[in-house]
Design a protein around this nucleic acid. Structure first.
Lengths: 366, 366
DNA sequence: AAACGAATTGAGACCGGTCTCAACATACGC
DNA sequence: GCGTATGTTGAGACCGGTCTCAATTCGTTT
């Protein structure tokens, strides 16, 4: 076998530097003694081919070790069967879970995932989106670094690619979105604290924001904005003055613990904390321990995200659980539908959060 | 502007269903009144172009909203600037961290990542690898589902694509690998327990394996195999009979806790446990609590991986920390080097693990 | 001013598939 | 037995880039 063709072995243009040329449809066609078109039909599973020829071609392909070039296919069909996903940081369990949810749906629908981390910066987000568009992804899943500056998202829409946002929404962009009911969640979580009698309650997030938070200000991330809104209105309803003064943003990843220490010590120390995600809860937990405060006796703590370990600490932590996996999965479902051509109106799906009360809340001291 | 060309507006073959055709080099060339070849040179940043023409072309590209088609480029150059990564499960913090490490290096080197989950099954691993090869990735990063059945890995090598394994090695495959010193780590970790006086020590892993473990048997994952080896030899050195009887594999993800309960209760209950990763440690911790055993008084626990919460529990958990991020990063570095053409001998990099002693080890009860 | 070399440009093949269209073969109806 | 419908096959254009090679322009040298 394989004695056909001329000896162009040395004409080995590009390829993989390996000395081996890829086997192409033409090679298979020659081996099976049919035209390129027919071989392509048999291999690509389209058009009409007689059973005998199909079998002959497939056997030839098998023998030669033919492997279709998906890129060449994309060139003519316009479909790449690839979707791009841009997350803040895949190391963050939230994004890891959402990505897995999306990957499962994508896989079933026959799509691959190109993954990029934005580090929540619009600049690297722009770069990631640029590359993904250049690779002609069929659609994108994006947790936008900014809900306000939508230029990156516009690029996608202008390029004519379907886009689904997840975890955060953005005004004025033609895209579906899947988010959690953050405002309601924040209200319930904060309510637990006000009901217990707390008056000095802090909200901590790592969201980057210039200067301190002032009421009515627009925040970069809609999910944090919603949580802040739920938090401040709950405080206001409890008659606590200047709720916005208790919103602490900009807690840099490496400085969350220090920020937490500042908040829970001193004359005006908070007696309770709402952590915007499980990693922040971890830092607060550690901070409390480092300054000798006991939870919940000296400090109450509640957080978003039911990370698997939150039920394990002493005390276990009361959390607002989000259907993270489902957020990613649903986003992928919507995207696949768009890619398949659904032209219906854009929707924003809001998934419920679920309160899991544990042991980290108690009335404030004295 | 844009009044050039004939009105082939309706010849709108494929594209993105959006009614809009992609802007191509030819379009830009026409607008800038130069040949396609020249426009391509100016846009692709290769060959020689006069400054005036380059500027004219770039302005035309800007106005038309030209975006290079990376796929077409790959077709001729043979380079896709994409690397594939196959992990067990991106939701597993280990893989999430390693992936991030790889993504950072890849990004700096100008590569994108196509991500696939194998769920540790060779079958879906095969599918993932097939798709990635079809998409002509420049190389692959794989945490092989099996260190024994290397057919999937051979597919990659046969296709002439560079391959770097991480977390696990495989005999008989031409590939670099980056792993941690698991055997040494297991010895140290287990030694802590034997030194404390434990004689009934269990090792728990979720690795799938037919039937119970028997000495000398080949395990699917080399990293677990190494840990088991370190574990059993340490037990043997301590004069404990039938060390392999204490190796518990097959703990299915959803049944780890139940498996742990079985191990730590009953007449022959283990008084100490070595957990093969942080998720298992979590399950054991929970199991101990559910049956009313206190750590470390009633049960000692040590684990692999310094998950961020392991220092937070009461008691905090003694762990063997792995440089996970670096494992991914170094694997990516090796791969990029191969892609760039380094033809040196294949290497296996072994990174050190680091013991972090905390509070979860104590002598056994009487 | 003629000759030469370097820089720039254009024409067209090529990568590996898909797809359109025409040619041909076979089967069917009447 | 002839016209037509259906099925199968082949030839060649095409997708959007890159790359080779020849043609042209321009500046220099002698």
């Amino acid at each position: 076998m394989g004695e056909h063709g001329s000896e162009h072995a040395s004409s080995n243009t590009h390829g993989n530097g390996n000395g081996r040329r890829e086997v192409t449809v033409s090679d298979v066609a020659a081996a099976a003694r049919v035209s390129k078109a027919t071989a392509a039909r048999a291999l690509g599973d389209y058009g009409a081919v007689s059973d005998s020829v199909r079998e002959r071609v497939q056997r030839a392909a098998e023998e030669l070790g033919y492997r279709a070039n998906a890129l060449a296919r994309t060139m003519t069909t316009g479909r790449s069967n690839t979707i791009g996903i841009v997350v803040g940081d895949i190391e963050n369990p939230f994004f890891a879970q959402a990505t897995r949810g999306a990957a499962d749906i994508a896989d079933t629908a026959g799509f691959d995932l190109i993954l990029s981390n934005s580090d929540e910066e619009t600049e690297s987000e722009a770069k990631a989106i640029g590359v993904q568009l250049a690779k002609r992804v069929d659609g994108l899943l994006v947790a936008p670094a900014s809900s306000v500056d939508i230029r990156n998202l516009r690029t996608i829409v202008d390029a004519g690619r379907p886009l689904v946002l997840f975890d955060r929404v953005a005004e004025g962009i033609e895209a579906d979105a899947v988010i959690a009911a953050n405002r309601t969640g924040a209200r319930k979580l904060t309510g637990l604290l006000t009901s217990a009698g707390h008056r000095r309650i802090a909200f901590i997030s790592t969201l980057l924001h210039t200067d301190g938070y002032r009421s009515g200000e627009v925040l970069g991330s809609s999910s944090v904005a919603e949580r802040v809104a739920g938090f401040t209105t709950t405080l206001a309803e409890a008659g606590i003055p200047r709720p916005e003064a208790w919103v602490r943003l900009n807690a840099r990843a490496d400085g969350v613990e220090r920020a937490a220490v500042e908040l829970i010590t001193g004359p005006d120390a908070a007696t309770a904390v709402v952590a915007s995600d499980s990693r922040i809860a971890l830092a607060v937990f550690r901070a409390a321990r480092s300054v000798g405060l006991r939870i919940p006796e000296d400090l109450s703590l509640v957080a978003f995200d039911d990370a698997d370990w939150t039920g394990l600490t002493t005390p276990s932590i009361t959390v607002m659980s989000q259907p993270i996996h489902e957020i990613g999965a649903e986003a992928a479902r919507l995207l696949v539908r768009r890619i398949r051509g659904d032209g219906g109106p854009f929707v924003t799906k809001v998934l419920d959060q679920r309160l899991i009360e544990r042991e980290s809340v108690a009335p404030p001291r004295l």
